[in-house]
């Protein structure tokens, strides 16, 4: 969402590229287009768009992604 952005540098999203197996499911489930495939690995291309919904974490088969928001 380009016209509506929330606070920068607050998301708790972490991607462990070592663990990424390149299945690209995170690029599919993320509603904010945070990830993009670059070669065999997923990359975070729009970190500040992350709203910590957890869809990527839930679906990553190799547990390469984590988000840990507080109470919300």
């Amino acid at each position: 969402m380009e016209d509506l952005r929330y606070l920068d540098d607050v998301s708790t999203l972490v991607l462990d590229k070592e663990k990424c197996i390149g299945c690209s499911l995170c690029t599919e489930v993320c509603p904010q287009a945070v990830f993009e495939m670059q070669g065999e690995k997923a990359h975070i291309v729009d970190f500040n768009a992350c709203m910590e919904c957890g869809a990527c974490v839930n679906n990553c088969p190799s547990k390469a992604i984590s988000v840990s928001p507080g109470v919300g």
């Binding site: 509506l4 606070l7 607050v10 910590e52 928001p69 507080g70 109470v71």
Partner: peptide, 13 residues
Amino acid sequence: TTPFTSPSGVEKE
């Protein structure tokens, strides 16, 4: 209500 705010951001605010 919005679809783009992160819980961490809301907490900070």
